[in-house]
């Protein structure tokens, strides 16, 4: 199944991906980002916004 994968070695936990998610799928608690797959629609907004290119679609 396709999903957004988080490269935790790149993620700088800035929250930009949360701000652009229409579906409230991304959640950042302190330094830990979670993408709730039940809400994620793979719209790619967060992938395009991430300043660190820490997010990508995983087949």
């Amino acid at each position: 199944m396709r999903r957004i994968s988080i490269n935790r070695y790149r993620c700088a936990y800035c929250g930009a991906c949360v701000a652009v998610c229409k579906f409230d799928a991304n959640e950042l608690v302190e330094t830990f980002l979670t993408i709730h797959e039940d809400k994620c629609t793979l719209c790619m907004a967060c992938v395009k916004t991430c300043p660190m290119q820490a997010l990508e679609v995983e087949e």
Partner: peptide, 19 residues
Amino acid sequence: DGVESRVGKWAGIDTTLKL
């Protein structure tokens, strides 16, 4: 709660940012 605000969403204020 900053750029990643969820309070607005919970309260029904849509602050989602477009690209």
